[in-house]
Design a binder for these strands. Structure first.
Lengths: 355, 355
DNA sequence: CCTAAAGATGTAATCGATTACAAAGTCGAT
DNA sequence: ATCGACTTTGTAATCGATTACATCTTTAGG
């Protein structure tokens, strides 16, 4: 029961270093921040004192005075989704290069948690914000905007306002997914959505519809299952699929987790992939290469996306924003693997006899 | 090219609120921090001024004065590993309940990055540390310790020093894994390790050896492959496995990723699971339930682990640490699924004729 | 009604850095 | 040696809150 045993290490202030070096605190501060503003002899004197005392500046004090924290907030919908972990790496790489740190705001798919991070912003603890929440600007997002800080929207092209968007080409990729399936002869499709109301989901569904139109297919030629970017969504979609008389032969899931849940569930019920049904995922997570058969999917340039987002935010924070940098839309790559194949003769025959 | 358009929102200071309410800044501060220290009439007066002005305290200033940031640092080896995302949720739940925020230090399996977070600690930006780096106390860890802050070691029972350990029963679970395989008749085992030098890996290997001893098996009865808690480790272990004349029949991988990499690779080469080889993983990640066949593994109580770690740290920060709370070791749960089965007659026969 | 104790509020010091401004030092040209 | 221009350093204000201490009010007890 030892109270207050912590923080017993003596705190060294800039004044201590100044005394040790025989100069003023201003000089110490300058040595550390603008080394070429002081005579090199003084510089060495001070650096020696810094070393001997083991001084590290108190950045809370510095932040107060400079009114900057060199920290940015990254709001993530769900850290358990490996997609975000990858994007974070990209952001981190870009920001630390410029001396910025990042604090991660994990919403855990739970809207109310946004409030917590609004506080972080309003209380001046961060210099900028990277928003990956896919919802339309809600209360939380709006409040953050009101703080007047630089914001970059990632994973969600917010049309309104002057917030730059750094995103992937969701719409184009979805369209390409339909094209991929259609070119293999699939005419009846299944669509496993993301959370309704999510901006990304909107983009992907729009692309899906565009793809249908390209292929000369219409609204009556597909089934839509509602999902939430998780395994379970694919499982329940599959359960419904199994009960259908007139099953789709090509499935497009807007995330790999759902695709894998679907894949696993239909196979457990005797459906062959890709002979009976083809599946295309979205994201290109590592695990998609370890399913059986390996999942056909679109790989997001996650690391690059993170870097791009960080880069734009840095520019904004430096006030060096140029219009041509405002919006970035990175392309995805089709990984054509083993869950997609041509419509089999069997399926064609059965469907014909039904007609 | 608009410089300095940001941070244009007028900053409201506590002095503004004080003026608006006709009281002193001290009173405003007290209303916000110790509401029952002021007369209720004054309280209302001030709160009204706060609301009208939209005031939010500048927490940088507060942190400087109070010498606390209400923030803790969580050092994670690799955010891309979903295991850590889950633990983080537990930590977050526990800490935010007490008003603490957390900053995540992602090492990305890269030791040098530790330095970055040492700075964070030394510059007084956090009040406590949760260490999940599995290495033995190295430079970084030591430096953090020197700052005199409360530290809790998770995922790594650091024997030296007075740092509490909040961990899972790695050793016992590994031992149980061997027992599980041995009870199915497996006598020749394969072990896919974590990174050598990692504390957790040490525990798990020790448990593995204990399990061998329990089963009356010795050092000559197993093959050890070096891994790094990633898919690829399982793949290369499998590639080696396939070249062996005298193959193990039971594999224990110290993480699910490796187990899955192994599973996928041997099956792609015609090896049947569990008929030809049984596989046990470790962690219980969600994916492990989506492989084919589903992976037998040990589930870590990740959320509980996170909560426990946060709880101990909170106690330390409050100076309310009692010895009996210092070390926590949570049990794992065997999820006996489909990658493990009895040694098949075929394998037994073949091995006999070899003898 | 008076006094002491308790309660509420205000004044000003404080946390530890950065930086505007002033002062002192350096140097070369005259 | 003197002047000005430039470089280097020091002094003290500042960032925006919290809080020790002083002061003023209220309450309770006699």
């Amino acid at each position: 029961m030892s109270r207050k045993r912590w923080r017993t290490v003596k705190e060294i202030r800039i004044a201590d270093v100044a005394r040790l070096a025989g100069v003023s605190t201003a000089t110490v501060s300058r040595v550390l921040a603008n080394p070429d503003m002081v005579r090199s002899k003084t510089h060495d004197l001070v650096m020696d004192a810094v070393r001997r005392s083991g001084y590290t500046p108190n950045s809370v004090a510095r932040n107060l005075r400079t009114r900057r924290t060199m920290t940015v907030l990254v709001v993530v919908p769900n850290l358990a989704n490996p997609v975000f972990a990858q994007i974070l790496r990209g952001i981190d790489d870009e920001l630390t290069q410029s001396g910025y740190g990042l604090v991660i705001g994990n919403l855990d798919n739970c809207t109310e948690r946004e409030a917590r991070y609004v506080d972080l912003v309003r209380s001046r603890q961060v210099d900028g914000i990277l928003l990956m929440t896919g919802r339309l600007p809600g209360d939380g997002t709006r409040h953050m905007g009101e703080a007047g800080l630089p914001i970059v929207a990632m994973c969600a092209a917010i049309p309104d306002g002057r917030i730059p968007n750094v995103v992937v080409q969701d719409r184009e990729a979805s369209r390409a997914a339909v094209h991929h399936l259609a070119s293999l002869g699939h005419k009846r499709l299944g669509y496993i959505s993301g959370p309704l109301g999510n901006v990304i989901e909107g983009e992907r569904f729009a692309g899906f519809l565009e793809g249908l139109a390209d292929a000369g297919l219409g609204q009556q030629d597909f089934v839509r299952w509602e999902g939430r970017f998780i395994f379970a969504a694919g499982v329940s979609a599959a359960e419904n699929f199994l009960r259908l008389k007139n099953r789709p032969t090509g499935i497009f899931a807007t995330c790999d987790e759902s695709a894998i849940g679907f894949l696993k569930t239909v196979r457990a019920n005797g459906v062959r992939v890709p002979e009976d049904v083809s599946i295309v995922g979205f994201d290109g997570i590592e695990f998609a290469d370890y399913t059986e058969p390996t999942l056909t999917t679109f790989r997001q340039p996650l690391h690059e996306l993170g870097r791009a987002g960080g880069h734009v935010l840095l520019n904004m924070m430096r006030g060096e924003m140029r219009p041509e940098d405002w919006n970035v839309r990175l392309p995805l790559t089709l990984l054509a693997r083993d869950t997609t194949g041509p419509v089999s003769a069997g399926v064609r025959r059965r469907r014909m006899s039904e007609a």
